[in-house]
Nucleic acid binder design. Structure first.
Length: 762
RNA sequence: UGGGGCGUCGUCUAAUGGCAGGACAGCGGACUUUGGAUCCGCCGGUCGUGGUUCGAGUCCACGCGCCCCAGCCA
């Protein structure tokens, strides 16, 4: 029997987060032995970057815990789902590197058992067939601020429900005539609990089950029970399903041990915050608009955020995984900076992409002192990459350079070609441009220059070389098309616009005709190159042929020159802070006001007095604590007992609070110890004072014991002592904390603090 | 305006009452036959107001802001 273990932080693919904390605790407590997750895409569209993130969480966590993750196609709606999408999903998930072993499932695999469970629910009296028309069901459901009302069909007998449901299954009814609903609570403030629909009639052919069924389970029914059937333990999903959890738990609990479901392990749902990406949309509706509107060439257009698009662009799965790993997981919905994705792509490619030269916007440079040709050795990688390999590149009389690499009037800091300047031809000689040939409109159409002899592998003496530029032999260079892919949208948050298409970036694809060095001719077609000084490229897997080379730009190089050139436009408006503060409205009833005044008179702080006056349960508790001044007791009641009291979970009696507070007053324990004891008392139901006694939690306040500890800490952190003396006052808390740790919280912090102060001022 | 969820550098994310740290971005420098990579440095944050505490991003109260829920979608 395989068992999950808690991985060390270094061994994790998925950085520790609130979900792994829950799992760690579940493993430690023995609640689960084996971690089982699932990734449940609906086969109604192509996977995109959002699926990459969700799948990373599901597959990554399962792998980290040596558990398993099921790939489950959530196909409960025959109207929208297609086998072609299943294929795309399986393909893309494999591409990302996920391994589900034999655990490829379909919700439709479970249709028989789900049906059986629906009948079980009916027999328990917990589900009924509702025959209200669709509009009425909607109407009866109420609104978020008004409760729903029960359907007149809600109390049909088990027999009638069973009969109707079976006839639904047998195809006796039209679509919409009946639905099966769970009988939960039509007045619940959680809309999902207002008798959720479990099954509906759809007379459509399912891509897998054909015409076997004409009733199909809803997500809320099929999802939790599929999890349960498959033995999933942790069902991780995004935050919009938080309210569905109530239905999830209701179903799991009412069907536990039923219909062949085990009592344990039961699955539980945990929700994480959604992630979106700047300059991107992922909703199927919007993606369809781009495809159908002809704004992109298809679902795998290199500009698309689909995994097939990213793949065609040339992004490797390693980069995607690195990206989603860096994004991280939390409970909060977030929008990720697209620069992080670009960084991940570059970081991946930098180490693997051979460097070659291509000229995208060619300008002819005639080297007047070059005759014939010379084949020069050029390494594929710069020294810092540490990889072997080189190719030969031909230098001929005519070469192409990048039009943007020549300036008639070079700006300050220019490190390229200019009249009379010496510039390195990458991997070759230093060149000097003598003449710019211009047409009648004054535009530069060609350059004439000469190479400097004896500058191969060394710099000329007495001449300043300004930078190095890439180039391609005009005779040997291969003509090629270059597709420069850029962000699909001009604004970071196209989703926020009334019409996201307004932000479409018409410059997101720029096509260039240029030349590439001949060495690439026989390279494997999936080679990712770095075109020196331009970016990372690879052959378009669809359109590139030997006769007509087509390269896609995967991502540009970081370009500090271009950045400098660009006007320093402010990146983002400062986030607006919360508005003006509203003062608290102390609307009190006359009785509450009287209590408030009374508490005030007893010396209780204003804030505590207000809470105690308003929340009579807390007030009553306070007044049941005898033998101590009210003002001493009040903060404890409000801050320590109050939260438990409100939830109805308080386990500490007033007299027991009084007992331990007396110990505090006598100086036998510190406030910190009281807090700790109260916490334990709430957990165990024991008397706090008894906990103090049994666990030896008495306070350590005598200087003889504390002084050596203080000295020890001071000795252990000399550089912090120096920092403190230099003015970093916040370190006092650190020092005190060290002693608190060393005494397991028993030291009297006030005493410790004053000892430190005295010592540090010496 | 009912219920639920969430607020930490520009962005993402740590800190489980004890030094607010890291990454990306930005800025500056070193190095460079890629204005790449690498290295070094800098900038910059706890939504607000109070309270509790020796000590609060963390606990309490009151506000503010954003997101989700009224599909026979998932």
């Amino acid at each position: 029997m395989p068992r999950s273990g808690i991985p060390s932080d270094e061994a994790r693919l998925v950085p520790p987060n609130f979900i792994t904390e829950i799992i760690d605790e579940d493993l430690r407590s023995g609640k689960y032995d084996l971690i089982v997750t699932r990734f449940p895409p609906e086969p109604n569209g192509y996977p995109h970057i959002g699926h990459a993130i969700a799948s990373f969480i599901d597959f990554g966590i399962a792998a980290d815990y040596k558990g398993r993750c099921h790939l489950r196609l959530d196909d409960t709606n025959p109207l929208t789902e297609r086998a072609q999408y299943v294929e795309a999903i399986v393909n893309d998930m494999r591409w990302l590197g996920w391994d589900w072993g034999v655990h490829l499932y379909y919700a439709s695999d479970h249709f028989d058992r789900l049906y059986e469970m629906a009948e079980a629910l009916i027999k328990m009296g917990k589900a009924y067939v509702d025959s209200l028309p669709e509009e009425k069901i909607r109407e009866f459901r109420g609104t978020p601020d008004r409760p729903g009302i029960p359907s007149p069909y809600r109390d049909r007998s088990v027999e009638e429900n069973l009969d109707l449901f079976r006839r639904m299954r047998d195809g006796e009814f039209e679509e919409g005539a009946h639905v099966l609903r769970a009988k939960i609570d039509m007045t619940s403030p959680n809309m999902k609990l207002r008798d959720p629909i479990l099954y509906r009639i759809i007379h459509a052919e399912h891509y897998r089950t054909g015409t076997k069924w004409c009733i199909y389970p809803m997500y809320d029914f099929a999802h939790p029970l599929s999890d349960y059937i498959e033995g999933v333990t942790h069902s991780l999903c995004s935050s919009e399903f938080i309210e569905n959890r109530a239905v999830y738990d209701w179903l799991v609990e009412t069907l536990a041990g039923c219909c062949g479901l085990p009592e344990w392990p039961r699955p539980k749902q945990i929700e994480f915050g959604r992630r979106s990406l700047e300059y991107t949309v992922v909703s199927k509706r919007k993606l369809v608009k781009l495809v159908e509107g002809g704004l992109v060439s298809g679902w795998d257009d290199p500009r698309m955020p689909t995994l097939s698009g990213l793949r065609r662009r040339g992004v490797r799965p390693q980069a995607i995984r690195r990206f989603v790993q860096k994004v991280g997981i939390s409970r909060t919905d977030r929008t990720v900076d697209i620069a992080l994705l670009e960084w991940a792509i570059r970081d991946d490619l930098n180490a693997v992409a051979p460097r070659v030269m291509a000229v995208l916007d060619p300008l002819k440079l005639v080297l007047t002192n070059v005759e014939g040709e010379e084949w020069l050795e050029a390494p594929y990688f710069p020294p810092d990459i540490g990889k072997e390999g080189s190719r030969k590149i031909p230098l001929t009389r005519e070469i192409y350079v990048e039009r943007s690499d020549f300036a008639l009037e070079p700006p300050k800091g220019w490190k390229r070609l200019a009249l009379g300047w010496a510039t390195r031809l990458r991997h070759a000689y230093v060149v000097v441009v003598d003449e710019a040939v211009r047409d009648d409109r004054g535009a530069v159409v060609a350059l004439k220059g000469r190479v400097l002899k004896d500058t191969l592998g060394k710099n000329p003496e007495g001449i300043k070389v300004r930078g190095a530029i890439h180039w391609v032999s005009a005779r040997y260079g291969l003509p090629a098309e270059f597709r420069l892919v850029d962000r699909l949208f001009r604004v970071p948050h196209p989703d926020e616009l009334p019409d996201f298409l307004d932000a479409y970036n018409p410059e997101s694809l720029e096509v260039k005709q240029g030349f590439i060095e001949p060495s690439v001719k026989d390279d494997p077609p999936d080679t990712r190159y770095q075109f020196e000084r331009l970016g990372y490229f690879w052959r378009d897997p669809v359109d590139s042929t030997d006769a007509q080379l087509v390269f896609n730009r995967i991502v540009t190089l970081k370009d500090t020159w271009a950045r400098r050139e660009k006007a320093q436009r402010p990146r983002k408006a400062a986030a607006k802070k919360a508005g003006p503060v509203a003062k608290r409205p102390p609307e009190l009833t006359p009785e509450a006001r009287a209590r408030f005044e009374r508490y005030l008179a007893q010396g209780i702080g204003e804030q505590e007095a207000l809470i105690l006056a308003r929340e009579t349960e807390l007030g009553r508790y306070l007044e049941a604590v005898f033998g101590l001044p009210r003002k001493t007791v009040a903060p404890w009641v409000v801050h320590e007992i109050g939260p438990f009291l409100r939830r109805g979970e308080n386990r500490i009696r007033p007299e027991d609070l009084a007992e331990i507070l007396r110990l505090l007053a006598e100086g036998q324990v510190s406030a910190r110890i009281v807090k700790e004891a109260l916490q334990k008392a709430q957990e165990s139901g024991r008397r706090p004072a008894a906990i103090v006694l049994e666990e030896g939690l008495s306070v350590i306040a005598d200087e003889a014991t504390l002084s050596p500890l203080v000295d020890e800490v001071l000795r252990a952190f000399p550089e912090r002592v120096a920092a403190y003396k230099a003015g970093k006052a916040g370190l006092l808390g650190f020092f005190v904390g060290q002693v608190m740790q060393r005494t397991k919280g028993r030291a009297d912090p006030q005493k410790v603090k004053s000892l430190f102060k005295a010592r540090l001022e010496e």
